[in-house]
Design a protein around this nucleic acid. Structure first.
Length: 694
DNA sequence: ATTAGGG
DNA sequence: CCCTAAT
């Protein structure tokens, strides 16, 4: 035909628009990413939302509880505790030296144990290690820290029982509700007793709680040495008030994770960063870690659950830019019963949390009285990053008038144990990223909030706090929140393709910008003008039915009176395990946004020239012609640039930004654009005419 | 793989 | 720049 024939239209040598190339590939381009819907909500958001009262008064005082500095981890010391002379030992961070390391080792032992007992499940990629540590969710009694501490100790001790480890572990989990008392020996003894007496039972328990949680696809992997098994020490403290974390530097592992290898401490290395989990998730170029990511994806990661629209987000449906500072979430209870969440574009990816949920901790109540006065002291306590010491989650209801309000705030929560399988030869940097990815994945996943009272889950979202007893003094102590995956989501695809999991340490954390509690984050506090208004009741309702648990197993092990530790139902564990890969871990392939590279005038010049010559529908040719060696300029980029050029040319110079483009070029842009647009029309006309003729 | 457009 | 749909 004559389609390719060149004709001279007498205009700058423009050529006839090229006809569609029939020969060009018609394969659909594989989309590399999926747009994240704003339905999702980060754990932070949820927590923040759930958090009831917001120590508004604190705004004026308590400035540095949670400095943005190195350590974001905040331990919330509950008021009660404080009033009790601080009998409890200060919860200090346990350096990555011994105690905590034990747990790591412990973890690996679990794996082996599980493996040996054929409890391995190839289906799910998540670890069970945190069955105990991460399962309990709330603790709100005055000596929470102590309990938690016990818990940890217990675990460690259990860890030494190599042979019975697995059983103990699972058992412990099941019995966690009883921690309220004098954990330690008591619990342990209890466990051992049960072990002896009910081996089978225990076994079954384990089967339920642990077996499937094994993240190893191949049992043999367990005994293989190469990949060092790294696990965060029981959990990672995630303060709510983190703001930004410098890209590439994961600052939260120092005390949280240990590298464990069969060679003992030889290879152990810890991060030296403070335990700030995430200050900022910004995209950052990360090349060369694919391998690691893949590894992560295929082994120990699990996907984060999804949330439904109606569950958490509001109706504004507004998509917010990804880059945004995440503020500490804070909710204020007011008369209004609605809370509004700004939807965010959330990222999600496969995550691996070893247990069924992220336990909340650091729930503190804010008694009417002087939060101002002692707020600093109580909140500034460092939180044991190791999770050994969990922040106190004291909750108390303050009653004063008919219009009693339940005030509480969740200062922080922990991310369940993380597992990272990484090569020994990987760099520390990649390790950091891996951890960051893991954390991000967890936090970026969709979670639900579970509310527990005295160890029981409150399912009816429509009940009032009064009805559920949340507002009751005695029950406040047993109020807990859990972060858990959405069990109702589609089952995890388990497909390899979805396994790829590439979170970036700089991944923007999808958090809603809430007003920040001065107490928590005085420095970065940037109270939004219109903080969400809500109260616990509303929050729960807002998530109507979102906290649904497929089974009732949840309460099986929790005695009504159990306090402090609330065991998260085995179901949760499974649910998490099966956490739907939902919407395919977009993060995985999303990789990062390319860096912005403004076109220089010379580039514009070249582009204009090429377009004048080739027209506006042959970007590939334009690319080849003028940008063939500009690797970073794709034909899409050129096309986009042209688009913006045209736009720029149309607007007034005052409205233009960036490096000014010579008017001369803009004029050419305009004329070329007009010309080719015309050509296009002509072409269309001809087409239709020829059709009519046929 | 390209192109065209919306975001 | 990104993301998608349609080629």
């Amino acid at each position: 035909m004559v389609l390719q024939k060149r004709l001279d239209y007498g205009f700058n040598g423009y050529q006839v628009p090229a006809m569609p190339r029939a020969s060009r590939s018609a394969r659909g381009r594989r989309s590399l990413g999926v747009k994240v819907e704003d339905k999702q909500m980060s754990a932070f958001e949820l927590l923040a939302t759930v958090a009831g009262n917001l120590l508004q008064e604190r705004e004026s005082s308590a400035p540095s509880n949670a400095s943005v500095g190195n350590d974001q981890s905040i331990t919330v010391k509950d008021t009660v505790k404080q009033e009790q002379h601080d009998e409890e030992k200060p919860l200090k961070v346990e350096p990555c030296d011994q105690g905590s390391c034990d747990e790591s080792v412990f973890v690996s032992e679990i794996h082996s144990q599980v493996h040996n007992q054929n409890y391995t499940s190839k289906k799910f990629l998540y670890s069970q290690s945190d069955a105990t540590l991460g399962l309990y969710s709330i603790i709100t009694t005055s000596d929470q820290s102590e309990k938690v501490g016990c818990d940890e100790k217990l675990v460690r001790r259990l860890g030494r029982h190599k042979n019975t480890f697995g059983n103990l572990h699972s058992k412990v989990k099941g019995g966690s509700p009883g921690y309220g008392e004098s954990c330690k020996d008591k619990v342990e003894d209890e466990i051992e007793k049960q072990l002896e007496a009910e081996p089978q039972k225990i076994g079954s328990v384990m089967n339920e709680n642990v077996a499937d949680t094994c993240c190893l696809e191949d049992p043999k992997e367990l005994n293989r040495k190469p990949p060092a098994l790294i696990s965060s020490d029981s959990s990672v403290e995630v303060p709510l008030n983190r703001d930004h974390i410098p890209c590439g530097s994961f600052r939260g592992c120092q005390d949280d994770m240990k590298v464990v290898s069969r060679d003992d401490d030889e290879n152990s290395s810890g991060c030296t960063q403070p335990s700030t989990i995430m200050k900022e998730f910004r995209k950052q170029p990360r090349i060369g870690d694919r391998r690691i990511r893949k590894l992560l994806a295929s082994k120990y990661w699990k996907v984060a659950p999804k949330l439904k629209d109606d569950e958490l987000s509001n109706t504004d449906g507004e998509m917010k830019p990804v880059y945004r500072n995440r503020k500490t979430c804070f909710t204020r209870q007011r008369s209004q019963r609605n809370f509004s969440f700004k939807r965010r574009k959330l990222y999600q990816s496969s995550v691996s949390t070893s247990d069924g949920g992220i336990s909340s901790e650091g729930i503190s109540t804010s008694p009417e009285k002087g939060i101002n006065g002692d707020g600093t002291a109580s909140d500034a306590t460092m939180h044991g990053a190791t999770g050994t010491s969990s922040s106190v989650a004291g909750q108390q209801a303050s009653f004063q008038s008919m219009d009693s309000h339940v005030k509480l705030s969740i200062k922080s929560f922990r991310v369940p144990e993380l597992f990272i399988d990484i090569s020994e030869t990987a760099t520390v940097g990649s390790l950091k990223r891996a951890v960051m990815e893991a954390v991000t994945a967890i936090l970026g996943g969709e979670l639900h909030i579970g509310v527990l009272i005295q160890g029981k889950k409150v399912r009816d979202d429509n009940k009032t706090l009064l009805q559920t007893g949340i507002s009751q003094d005695d029950r406040m102590d047993t109020l807990g929140f859990m972060l858990e995956p959405n069990p109702a989501q589609d089952p995890p695809p388990l497909c390899p393709e979805n396994s790829s999991f590439l979170l970036h340490c700089d991944t923007p954390l999808p958090l809603t910008r809430y007003s920040v509690s001065p107490t928590l984050d005085p420095v970065t506090s940037d109270a939004s003008p219109d903080p969400p208004v809500t109260n616990l009741g509303n929050c729960v309702q807002g998530h109507h039915d979102s906290v649904f648990f497929p089974t009732d197993i949840s309460t099986v092990n929790s005695t009504p009176d159990s306090r402090a530790l609330v065991a998260i139902p085995a179901m949760s564990v499974e649910a998490l395990a099966v956490v739907p890969l939902h919407r395919k871990s977009r993060r995985s392939e999303l990789v990062q946004r390319r860096i912005r590279r403004p076109f220089s005038v010379s580039e514009v010049e070249a582009l204009v020239q090429a377009v004048e010559k080739l027209g506006t529908g042959r970007w590939r040719d334009v690319k080849l012609r003028s940008f063939d060696n500009a690797k970073h300029r794709t034909y899409v980029d050129l096309k986009d640039k042209w688009k913006t050029l045209v736009h720029t040319a149309k607007i007034s110079p005052q409205q233009r930004r960036g490096e000014p483009v010579p008017q001369e070029l803009l004029d050419r842009v305009l004329s070329a654009h007009a010309y080719w647009s015309q050509q296009a029309k002509q072409h269309v006309k001809q087409q239709s005419e020829s059709c009519l003729l046929l």
